[in-house]
């Protein structure tokens, strides 16, 4: 390098040239890095949910045919939603538990809008299996709610995790009562 500079002329001029070249190279390199970074984003973002996926159809559930003690499963966002019409005993059972005993402490009142109607996502918070407990013949686990057969998580009558590997309670989706006998999920 040095020899090349010398052959061009006096040293101070050459030195200035070298600095300018390095500066140029750095700037151009920085611009190129920004450019590459900016190019990567559209590719990554294209894999995020598209606009039609985000504008999900909401699901409406007619509650009138669900008798006390029964439950239905409806599909929302490609996942099952459990809607259970709880018996007074089940409500009682859920509310009698001291919060300190819970892994993910949440009072039952915070998980329902109307006492007897429990609406939760039917997706085990461990690794995403669908717990049993919707059909009368299903195993409901030791706490009378749901039991996940994949890895043995037990949920209570408020959908809260009580035993097993799952870390959190069954998620409550956003829903509204459009009338006394109908809810809209989403």
């Amino acid at each position: 390098m040095a020899e090349a500079v010398v052959s061009h002329g006096t040293a101070p001029e050459g030195g200035a040239k070298e600095t300018r070249r390095d500066f140029l190279k750095l700037t151009a390199g920085a611009f190129a890095a920004v450019g590459v970074g900016a190019v990567v984003w559209p590719f990554i973002h294209s894999m995020n949910p598209a606009r039609d996926v985000l504008a999900l159809a909401s699901t409406e559930v007619d509650l009138s045919p669900i008798a006390t003690g029964q439950a239905v499963t409806v599909m929302w966002r490609g996942k099952p939603v459990f809607v259970r019409n709880r018996t007074p005993q089940e409500i009682e059972q859920a509310r009698a538990v001291p919060l300190g005993e819970l892994r993910d402490p949440q009072p039952d009142q915070a998980r329902v809008q109307r006492d007897n109607w429990l609406v939760v996502l039917g997706v085990c918070t461990h690794l995403g299996c669908v717990p049993l407990g919707q059909k009368p013949t299903d195993a409901r686990g030791e706490y009378g709610g749901w039991f996940c057969p994949c890895h043995g998580s037990h949920y209570d009558t408020s959908g809260r995790i009580r035993r097993g590997p799952a870390p959190l309670n069954l998620e409550v989706p956003t829903y509204t009562f459009t009338s006394d006998t109908q809810i809209r999920i989403g």
Partner: peptide, 20 residues
């Protein structure tokens, strides 16, 4: 606009590299 700027920079670097 970005490409024009980086194009100018790249061309300047090219001139410098090829100067000798």
């Amino acid at each position: 606009l970005f490409l024009v700027v980086i194009g100018g920079l790249t061309y300047a670097v090219k001139r410098k590299v090829w100067a000798d």
